[in-house]
Amino acid sequence: MTPASDGSVVDGSACRGIVMLAHGSPAWLDGLVAACVMAVSRVWGGAHHPHDVVAGVLVGVLVALVALVALVALVALVALVLSESLRRRREAAACWLTATWLRPLLTPS
């Protein structure tokens, strides 16, 4: 018997990932059932003690939550940088176009 169930960590992460991705749909139940079946099979097959499997699932869920928070923060940061960059480009394009013969079309009369 190993002290940590690495398979249970994967099971917990996969379950939490499915639950996060399937938010609002019945597919989250499939992930939960699959993780439970995998966890029980590890104990039933004698590969791990029950507390090893529970600890592994908890670690997996924690890792999945940390990864989700990091991913959301990264996406928010990228969106902020891109929106600022696009705003500057839009302003530069507007300044350039108002200096051309198109100015009467772009400025209010």
Rank of each mutant, 00 (worst) to 15 (best):
R103Y: 14
V53T: 03
D6M: 14
A27F: 12
G24C: 07
A93H: 10
L97V: 01
A92N: 11
L82D: 07
D30T: 08
R88S: 00
C95F: 12
G24F: 01
L32Q: 10
S25K: 14
L106R: 08
A92E: 07
A99N: 05
R90S: 03
V19N: 03
L102S: 04
R89K: 14
D52S: 00
L71N: 04
V59G: 00
A14S: 09
L58C: 11
V9N: 02
R103Q: 09
A70M: 06
G60Q: 00
V66R: 05
P108T: 13
L97H: 10
L80D: 11
A99S: 13
W96A: 02
V33R: 04
G56V: 03
L32W: 11
L86V: 15
A14F: 07
V75H: 00
H48A: 05
L102R: 00
R89L: 14
C95A: 15
G46P: 08
W96E: 14
H49M: 03
C15H: 03
L65I: 12
L74W: 11
P26Q: 05
A55G: 07
R87T: 09
A47T: 04
L65P: 07
A70C: 08
L97D: 05
P108F: 02
L102D: 05
I18A: 07
G31E: 00
M38W: 10
W28F: 06
A76Y: 01
A35M: 11
M1L: 15
G12Y: 02
R103K: 10
L74Q: 12
R16D: 09
L77D: 09
A64D: 07
L105F: 08
M1C: 10
P3C: 08
G56H: 05
G46Q: 03
M38N: 05
R103E: 14
V40L: 13
E91A: 06
H23C: 07
V78G: 05
A55R: 11
V57P: 03
G45R: 15
